[in-house]
Design a binder for these strands. Sequence first.
DNA 1: CCTCAGGACAACC
DNA 2: GGTTGTCCTGAG
Length: 270
Amino acid sequence: MTEIIVDYFDLEQICESGQCFRMKRKSEHQYEVIAGDRYLQISQKGNQICFDCTPEEYEGFWKRYFDLETDYGNFIQRIDPGDSYLMEAARFGSGIRILKQDLWEMIVSFLISQQNNIRRIRRCIEAICEKYGEKKRNKAGDIYYAFPKPEAFAGLGEDDLKKCNLGYRSKYVVRTARMTADAEVDLQKIERSSYPEAKEELMRFYGVGSKVADCICLFALGQMEAFPVDTHINQALQKHYPGGFPMEAYPGFQGILQQYIFYYELMGGK
DNA sequence: CCTCAGGACAACC
DNA sequence: GGTTGTCCTGAG
């Protein structure tokens, strides 16, 4: 058990912000996260976060995963005070953090995300994990499934993942898994690349366009300059920024602002 | 019945 | 360069 105190951290906001599809609320303050092949129970009361893991696991993995070294308050303070919409969106989602998730897992997750809603994305991902992921047990003895490695999909037919309800996205995942397993694209090199280089390389995968590549750059690589524009963001930008979003005012952290806007548009009305 | 959900691609012009 | 039809699926 490892306990820490942080500002600007809210498990519910992180869970509902649509960046991690394998984070789930278990009870009032309790959440579970499955990241790659790791399982974590985590809870929050006020500013106190409680990780159900050893200090070594916290220092060695989860601290980086939840981006706990970054000062998000600094980003919020640098927002133009005259931009009342962005100020309100950032206040509303001030507990969001950009998770540093596994690269391969994010590639597949956002291939599945296209023209799809979040609830169904979660179901598709659970389906492929149960069918192709390694079966494991957490500390409590409960079964969970790790995220499948590229090799688990590489030998499949292009339509085989339709059984997991991926629809036309099945061939995107299978072809991308083959390219990765055959080392046509080097994931480790992408992790060391700059944002433009990483994005260009990711777009070589069949089914990865500009938007999906930006999601991968933001949620796996921590490239905060990536600004994914989906239908929701597009509508919000046209409404509140008819002259275009002022990217140049927020160099290197547009991505977190995009996430505040996305979460505000998704949850702000409720 | 219809539209829409964190789009991408191929085939046009 | 920009525009359009098509692609699974299920919730509303």
